[in-house]
Design a protein around this nucleic acid. Structure first.
Length: 733
DNA sequence: GAGCACTGC
């Protein structure tokens, strides 16, 4: 990376860019990596006086980026980090009163919006890496757009400036979104990359829906490069840990048997060094990929998408692109998350190729054909906002006083059913009322950096006085998976896990109890890192959970002092572990399932009675016959539909909460929407036409699963239908 | 009778 900022392409455009900022309230800046936009533009703005009216805020999707960029700019300005230049990320606020340029994660700025909808501390907001379309960036987009439209910023002495920075040319979309603002293009410093289609995966392979063994194809291409191409390192893009390990094994075996005197065309190449990298890998091991290889050794890094954004490796000359990525998508109808291998988009393919041209001209080998590229790949990736559960987002917007979430300015609007599902969830949590208005509980919930179900459970654990159990569990659930299972030590890892849960909480009848046990072991033990290694526990994940725990605890203890904090009757007859499960039910009462009459599976109460199984990693796996009702943290759809992190519950704990859940299915949903689509400004009184004690509701209480399933399904589609009709009517008028 | 891409508050 060139440290000399005089070489940076942006420098030539300093005057033009400042003039553009001066003339327009918003601006889109397009520039590839290395153009210097992230480090230099804030400095220019600062010097030309923008910092006199407030902070210059720059957002990044990732923590490391926010911290490292801030450090570099501080060095360039020769000031101590945290003084003139600072950063703020979760758990680490490195800013002071002196700070004029503040780098932060976009999640942090989103939090600030909750307290100050005008961002009055800031004179300029720069949204960087907009092309990545992270959920938080997209929401910030909408918020600043609304800020402009509503004219709130007219109260300011100096209007807020917004600059959007993107690495790709879909900038037209961003400009249009910000009222056709000017687009400023900075040439990048990338070297040319030749793109080669290897035709090893074709469009018809996808149509046949057969499993495509791209790993062996990738190996083929890597070996070809190694044998025939000049010195230069290789970066391979695959989708997951298992694949990467398999690929590395194959490459290692193949390169071992090479005769470098005859087989290799470039005689300066004498060996191949194969290095895997993926997110769950320990950080020290990840770091190995940055070490330069010994002379004559060709480095080959086999990576997940992590090498596409988070990690930048210098010296890469050849990229091998599998064309696939693992992606999570959420189905609001079933409430199921699924992690699937899908083709990347054409713009992602370009991004991957670009990794070959950072230091010198390079080559990108795409294992797929041109047909595959054109027919199976979409132009752009589906943005996160269109494939995730939106309950957290909607709660945030509601707390900011944005009631009309259907007409919130989204760059790419999510499907209406996604928003309806979010409203429905928030209603049954009691965060909003049936008209969609925020409730006191919603204001308490939004303060936690947790999904709504978990924050509700945390609040009720405070009310039930069992937060000492629930807080660690909430922290562990929001961290990475703590149980490690190395491929060659599975039996030992499983044994260590079985031993822990049997000897600890409740004789091993709850996965939540196991999480609590692990957390307590780690926080009590002095040499917890050694203890973790012995017991196949992911130390980094537990450490993270401890930080989260402290943060949650400080939020909860402040809330418990308030007079409006909810209080519940404590049932002293309950055993300790049952108390934990019961408290968790207050947030996960929608996540319950009952043992099915046949087979080993269960039927969920939500998601229209989906047939689900206990995940083999659960303590309750294999003990299905002993169970009746269970509660789960999440459902994953892999080879089957599995409930992951499970405990058994008493139906009594949830039966009072469940009717509410179906009441909203049958009647409440349209009520949530009504005020938002009512043009007269006179919200219809939905209480009148939404009876709360109808036969449908009673049936639910009587556990009539089948009829319930039909009811809720048709009610949702009816509500949607009604909404769509009204929307249509509105546009006709 | 299995498998966990990647972020973030």
């Amino acid at each position: 990376m060139a440290s000399n900022s005089t070489e940076l392409p942006i420098r030539k455009f300093k005057k033009d860019i400042l003039r553009a900022v001066d003339r327009s309230q918003s601006l889109v800046v397009v520039g590839q990596t290395g153009s210097g936009k992230t480090t230099q533009l804030p400095k220019y703005l600062c010097r030309s006086g923008y910092s006199k009216h407030g902070l210059i805020g720059v957002t990044q999707p990732r923590r490391v980026a926010a911290m490292s960029v801030a450090r570099r700019v501080a060095e360039e300005l020769d000031c101590e980090l945290g003084t003139k230049v600072g950063y703020q990320v979760r758990f680490d606020d490195c800013t002071s009163k002196e700070t004029t340029i503040k780098y932060m994660t976009d999640g942090c700025l989103l939090r600030e919006f909750l307290d100050d909808r005008e961002l009055s501390r800031y004179s300029v907001i720069i949204l960087d890496e907009a092309h990545e379309r992270s959920l938080d960036t997209d929401i910030l987009f909408g918020l600043v757009n609304q800020l402009f439209l509503s004219g709130l910023s007219t109260k300011r002495k100096y209007p807020l400036k917004v600059i959007v920075m993107s690495a790709t040319l879909d900038a037209g979309k961003f400009s249009e979104f910000l009222g056709n603002c000017p687009i400023f293009e900075i040439p990048g410093r990338l070297h040319p990359v030749k793109e080669i289609f290897c035709d090893l995966v074709e469009a018809k392979d996808m149509e046949r829906n057969a499993t495509i063994n791209y790993v062996s194809k990738v190996v083929e291409v890597v070996m070809e490069i190694h044998l025939e191409q000049k010195q230069g390192d290789i970066l391979v893009f695959l989708t997951g840990q298992a694949e990467i390990e398999q690929c590395c094994d194959m490459l290692f075996k193949k390169s071992e048997h090479l005769d470098y005197r005859h087989d290799v065309s470039d005689r300066s190449v004498k060996a191949l060094m194969v290095l895997p990298v993926y997110g769950s890998m320990p950080t020290e091991m990840q770091r190995r990929i940055f070490e330069p290889p010994e002379p004559g050794v060709r480095k080959c890094v086999v990576a997940t998408n992590i090498a596409g954004t988070s990690l930048t490796i210098d010296g890469i000359k050849y990229v091998v692109d599998s064309g696939f990525v693992k992606q999570m998508s959420y189905n609001p109808r079933t409430g199921l998350d699924s992690l699937q291998v899908v083709p990347i988009s054409r713009s992602e393919a370009t991004q991957r190729s670009g990794r070959a041209g950072r230091t010198s001209p390079g080559k990108s080998y795409r294992i797929y054909s041109k047909d595959f590229y054109e027919q199976c790949m979409t132009e752009d990736m589906i943005p996160e906002i269109q494939r995730t559960s939106l309950s957290s987002v909607v709660l945030n917007l509601k707390c900011m006083g944005i009631h009309n979430i259907l007409e919130f300015p989204y760059v790419d609007p999510p499907e209406e059913r996604m928003l309806l599902e979010a409203l429905r969830q928030l209603f049954y949590f009691g965060a909003i009322d049936r008209k969609g208005h925020i409730q006191p509980l919603g204001h308490l919930m939004v303060e936690y950096p947790l999904p709504p179900g978990l924050s509700r459970a945390v609040i009720y654990s405070g009310a039930l006085d069992c937060h000492h159990q629930v807080l660690p569990v909430a922290a562990m659930l929001s961290s990475e998976n703590v149980f490690i299972r190395p491929a060659d030590e599975r039996k030992q890892a499983d044994a260590a896990k079985a031993h822990k849960r049997l000897s600890r909480m409740g004789g091993g009848t709850s996965d939540f109890g196991s999480l609590l046990a692990v957390f307590r072991c780690c926080s009590q033990s002095d040499s917890s890192s050694a203890w973790c290694r012995e017991n196949y526990i992911h130390w980094r994940a537990v450490k993270m959970a401890m930080s989260v725990h402290d943060q949650l605890q400080s939020i909860l203890s402040k809330q418990m002092k308030r007079s409006d904090f909810p209080k519940e009757k404590v049932d002293s007859s309950l055993k300790k572990e049952s108390l934990l499960s019961k408290a968790l039910c207050s947030g996960f009462f929608g996540n319950v399932a009952r043992r099915a009459t046949s087979g080993r599976g269960f039927r969920t109460m939500e998601g229209h009675g989906t047939y689900v199984f206990i995940h083999p990693s659960s303590v309750l796996f294999g003990r299905e016959d002993e169970l009746d009702w269970v509660m789960f943290h999440e459902i994953v759809w892999t080879s089957k539909v599995f409930m992951r992190t499970v405990c058994s519950i008493d139906y009594d704990w949830v039966k009072d909460l469940l009717p509410r859940l179906h009441e909203v299915d049958a009647y409440g949903l349209s009520g949530c929407l009504k005020p938002e689509i009512n043009e007269s400004g006179d919200p219809t009184d939905t209480e009148k036409d939404t009876p709360t004690n109808t036969p449908a509701v009673k049936k639910v209480a009587e556990k009539e699963e089948k009829s319930l399933k039909r009811n809720s399904e048709s009610a949702i589609s009816e509500a949607r239908q009604r909404y769509l009709e009204r929307k249509k009517a509105k546009t006709v008028r």
